[in-house]
Design a protein around this nucleic acid. Sequence first.
RNA 1: GCGGAAAUAGCUCAGCUGGUAGAGCAUCAGUUUCCCAAACUGAAGGCCGCGGGUUCGAAUCCCGUUUUCCGCUCCA
Length: 493
Amino acid sequence: MSKSTDELFKNVISHAKEYGFVFPSSEIYDGLSAVYDYGQNGAELKNNIKTYWWKAMVQMHDNIVGIDSAIFMHPKIWKASGHVDGFSDPMIDNKDSKKRYRADQLLEDKIDRYDKDGKTDKAEALQHDMDEALKNEDLPRLKELIIEHDIACPVSGTRNWTDVRQFNLMFSTQMGAVADDADVVYLRPETAQGIFVNYLNVQKSGRMKIPFGIAQIGKAFRNEVIARQFIIRMREFEQMEMQYFVRPGTQKEWFNQWKEARLKWHLALGTDAAKYRYHEHVKLAHYADAAFDIEFNFPFGFKEVEGIHSRTDFDLSQHQKFSGKKLQYFDPEVDPETGKPYGNYIPYVIETSIGLDRMFLLTMISAFEEEDLSTEEKQDSRTVLRLHPCLAPVKAAIFPLTKKDGLPEKAREIMDRLKIDFNIQYEEKDAIGKRYRRQDAIGTPFCITVDHQTLEDDTVTIRYRDTMAQERVASADLDKIIGDQVSWRNLLK
RNA sequence: GCGGAAAUAGCUCAGCUGGUAGAGCAUCAGUUUCCCAAACUGAAGGCCGCGGGUUCGAAUCCCGUUUUCCGCUCCA
């Protein structure tokens, strides 16, 4: 990280706290690791990002509907999805090289080596012992096996191992008042499964025809081994996901379509296109047949903001298997090749999954500017958030030029009218210039000033955040001027 | 989880070799000004992250701990 981008990131974090966007959680108790709260302006900005996404995905597509599923789900769901097995690994660290390994993989490697050396009996014995230990979740036994079979760290070559520890990335809690193993439930580690298990409900009650999508915005929880870089990786985070159900064989086509549509959604906000890139997954997860990330160039490098994954029929098939309920779809459309309907099948799924908190940070970083306004006479600068007007927490601020002569009353009158449609702030404290700068800092696109002339002819000055230019307009026109700029039409058309 | 660095007012930071806390900005009240960081007067705000220890005395030295940042590591 270069010095200037490092500075930028630090400044954005300070700014986010100072102006009520993001606070460390439980700060008066020293904070809670990797958990953050959204403040008064942050909550508005986040809600606006959600609205933009929801409108673009649900409202603009007549074949996509939105749901809101519970965070608690049947524990079997996480067996079916692979999270119980895939999200909890026995790990061991080498104290010399500081490298961490999956204990079972170290043993697997050893088994392979035994096989290669022709020591098949040893290989079989170890395989048996390991399977036994894994089945019983006997972690100390796994370490014994590593010691017994003289396994050394591939990096340091030493046998100086820590104990084997279980890393489970899912948070668990008990359901029901009596603590009992049988009642363990997990906090969902992704929102997608809430969509998959409701796929049939939505399809039937909404009479959805393939292709169709189900969208959801919601919290997910992961007990990350390490969670850092501000709100990039949090233990509690929010996802905006859409699962698009398609006929098998057409997934490639839809995958490409969504890949492009999603990048377009990002770029519509006016963010520098050069900051974005696609990243193709070379090593695919077990459920996917194609995967692209949309990455953004954060001050600390390119990071995933959104993933577009072709998930095949893996999830629905798994749920059909584990639940015993048929999750197939009857497609009455005629296949031109066979002349018969496509009939019953389990749909394939294209997933678009965006991290809301990352999107929030991306938006803050892109908008943040420390602008030098110095002239020959005096030094001057301002901090301005160049947020898209649709996303700005406060749409307009209303100032009486002075605190007397009836100007505050007039200003309040205009505010009372505008606040029905827009989030408006009123300020009369301090000099006008200072009030402008305060609004710049939270990204308010318009400042409206009521002066003595307003009392005579009902005109006001409107000052634009980005250019700092002022214009005198009729107060009656404000609704339209602001309305045009903050209309979702600007992003969705 | 390992290694390194840091933590002092809302923010940015100063505080020397130990002697019970300071600046700028921000906040609040008032006076004055009135279209781009104005001035003046006053006020509030800190158990110096937390807990131990050394000492007559600790923001300062030592140990532990929490949180944050950086590098590994991890990342469905």
